[in-house]
Amino acid sequence: MQRMKLVCPAGNLPSLRAAVDGGADAVYLGFRDATNARHFAGLNFSRDSIQQGVQYAHGHGCKVFVAINTYPQPQGWTQWQRAVDEAADLGADALILADTGLLDYATRRWPDVARHLSVQASATNPEALSFYHRLFDIRRAVLPRVLSLRQVARLIEHSPVPVEVFGFGSLCVMAEGRCLLSSYVTGRSPNTYGACSPASHVRWEETDQGLESRLNEVLIDRYGPGEQAGYPTICKGRFRVGEHVYYAMEEPTSLNTLDILPELMRAGVAAIKVEGRQRSPAYVAQVTAVMRAAIDACLADPQAYKPHAAWQQALASVSEGTQTTLGAYHRPWL
């Protein structure tokens, strides 16, 4: 079995360097446009900065994956096609793709550049993975955050390709690639635009009832004095259902798998992915260092592995809402 790898996010060059220096086996990044699922202002890479990033990473034995993982519509097709060409041309070690048409294009145009199936392709079972493997010879697949630990293990037993899972970061509670909550309210979704709750549609307002966050004028949450306000992602807002106002879908928490790393390794997970291309270089440095140390400890002696309190503290300090959860890996979360 291959050694479990660590894949870290880079929203810019300083983050990329932080990930490489912290011991990531691979970094993933995207272009500065809607071709990737973290399309935020001031974030991501130009052609030149990718070139520098690839040089730095390769110089330190770290791979570079380029995410082109949104769904091109007819009018955007040439832009997405160009992104694939540029990424291949710039020496990407793998392309992270979700759209079937784009996978087909990359397979025919760049057969020698590895293709990874993005989490945005919503492939949660071995038959779906076989589809992508049969048609596009994918080398790896990133699983949506909807499977339990047992389901991940069963899937790996039957999967035609190595599997990457999320190990830390913001938690999508919906099957990625099939969530339209954001476009229902703003017209822009991760699929079409590469962003959930685009900043252009977010409005904060102090009112008599508290601080309010709105998305295209829809009230997502209202915070009392002393309450920590979170970004108005629809799935993490508070709404009324019957008589109750509560987090109808999910509290603002982060996924944290430090407690189950040995189980993920035993299940045969090929790589652990850290979410957070939109976060700061300091976040990337912190999380990369902790995950590197934890994975190394786990690889050295899975039986004796126990997450250090300092690791947990370090991760909790950079977590959304400063809470962490095992999410769907842990059955009671459901």
Partner: peptide, 10 residues
């Protein structure tokens, strides 16, 4: 997720 003609063709 059939968003473009190439996906449709596949």
């Amino acid at each position: 997720n059939i968003y473009n003609p190439r996906t449709l063709a596949v």
